[in-house]
Design a protein around this nucleic acid. Sequence first.
DNA 1: ATCTATTCATTGCATATGCAATGAATACTC
DNA 2: GAGTATTCATTGCATATGCAATGAATAGAT
Lengths: 133, 133
Amino acid sequence: MFEIIRDIGAITRQIQNVSNAEFRKLGLANNAFIYVIRTYEQPGMFLGELADSVQIDRTTAFRTVQKLVQSGYLELQHDAHDKRLRRVFVTPKGAAIYPELHAFEQQCSDRLVSQLTGKQQAELKLLLSKLVY
Amino acid sequence: MFEIIRDIGAITRQIQNVSNAEFRKLGLANNAFIYVIRTYEQPGMFLGELADSVQIDRTTAFRTVQKLVQSGYLELQHDAHDKRLRRVFVTPKGAAIYPELHAFEQQCSDRLVSQLTGKQQAELKLLLSKLVY
DNA sequence: ATCTATTCATTGCATATGCAATGAATACTC
DNA sequence: GAGTATTCATTGCATATGCAATGAATAGAT
């Protein structure tokens, strides 16, 4: 069953490459676009929470978010009750590019599963959601 | 269907993290263990071929292989007919650790699919093999 | 309430990464 | 077979990455 690990690893790296190439022009290479997408969809996560949700090292995520704040896509707010937390939100600039980012993600996905029937696609999605890591 | 991309991305990064932590003691962090596994199983690939097979940037792969040659896990040979090519092989030292590397990979996979029935596991493997990238 | 253990964000530092460019060898065209 | 286009390995360079450590804030225990 180790082929599963190998396959998803190769696919992930490939998609990462094309995505980074696609979004470099927006200053969103190095997986930065992922943070904008996730933050748009789930605003108010704190930094570590966001990092964990995409399984990226917290310090790397921290620095990427800093850059995205600098470039105006994201903003940070202190939590009202827990002074340790810094919650992440998209700015209008970040919200404005979300459709483009998500459309590309969608397009990559569609291409990826283009050899599967609709039923198989649903089955794959279900099986993947059951993986434990 | 974009959940597919997100799921496999998160899983891949997670597995990468635990694998690197596991093999750091052997000097095989930063995905280096992948090259030993692949080279053991398919000896004689040239550098770019090996890089492409795991979807890692060729220059990164090149440098990782250099390190593995330095540390004695891999060796390079010039191709007899095409002077551009450098073919990769495992050394006895590389061959000696293959079982450990592969066992860990196996163990990660088993854990990953532990919530699936045998039939579902086979189905997942089949579906993944049909993905196009 | 004090003491201890966790959980955050953040920084330092050594190293890895990857785009762009180079030169050498081979393939392809006419 | 000269000329052009590809395909290699390799290097330079700027940047990203991630482990380890820090200090501040909170949670949990006694």
